[in-house]
Amino acid sequence: MSDPVLALEALTVRYGRFTALDGVGATFHGGALGLLGPNGAGKSSMLRAILGLVHPAGGRIRVLGQDTATAGPRLRRRLGYMPERDSYIVGISGVSALAHLAEICGLRRGDAMVRAHDVLHFVGLGEERYREVATYSVGMRQRYKLAAALVHDPDVLILDEPTNGLDPQGRVRMLELIAKVVREHGIHLILASHLLPDVERLCNDVWVLDRGELKKADTVANLTAAARGAKRVRLPDGARAAFTAAAQAAGLHVLGDGHDNEVLVSLPDGVVEPRQVFQLGAQAGVPVLGVKAAARSLEDAFLEALEGQP
């Protein structure tokens, strides 16, 4: 079996007294991984630790089978990073900047320039390649950053909020470009986003982070498997805790949806029958006021993970 693309062992990242990641351990074997979490969850810190831009306070990171602590900066030739913030070289054209960045990753000058032209055409900036990046619009800068991440042909693409600031059309185009690179060219993807539809569309694996801890690591398919069989249950005020306890004891996933008197119940793989819900209500001594079908999306799974449910 080949080495995992990314393996974290008790990864801890601290900035002074603040702990950004606390003992995170998980393995990503390849394909497309989505890092989900609210702001401040530790997604960007994880990406920066993978790139060696922050030094872990503890634990190990292995990327493509190599320990980042010992592999040295040359490992970054195989990684393509698109930062969340704008990042460009002032005073030179887009194509010159990309060629320069490709050269730093080991491409020869001629090859680097050819690739810079090609990649800018690929992301749709062919006509704008001789303009300074500082003059690009927000959408163009996002595409430029994707081109910069791809120009040296990495094996792993690491994207931090790639659709930030894009209009709906630009977002769709960006997701298409990423999907094309990942699916048609076998480049592994690690995507940090707070936009669940982006992750659902591109990724096969998901890690949910919150306040520096890994809350869930599973496949998108597993997390959304219960979508077909989830039920929304309406309960009297104050009955939620008792019902939740009974449902969890019966092996169901229970997710609050923000209303005190409603919960979402689902099975990891199967359909929750209304009869089963009423039986649970009876067991808990709680009258069930209503049961209706509820789609269980990645968003539900995400919220469930944040609430610390299994």
Binding site: I104, C105, D118
Partner: peptide
């Protein structure tokens, strides 16, 4: 030269062993 490729292509050339600061020297 193969410019204007609208599709992404993997790089099949050889990579240089020049130190990474060399392109920076050159660009400056």
């Amino acid at each position: 030269m193969a410019f204007r490729a609208a599709e992404y292509e993997r790089f099949s050339g050889t990579r240089s062993n020049a130190p990474p600061w060399w392109p920076l020297w050159h660009a400056t």
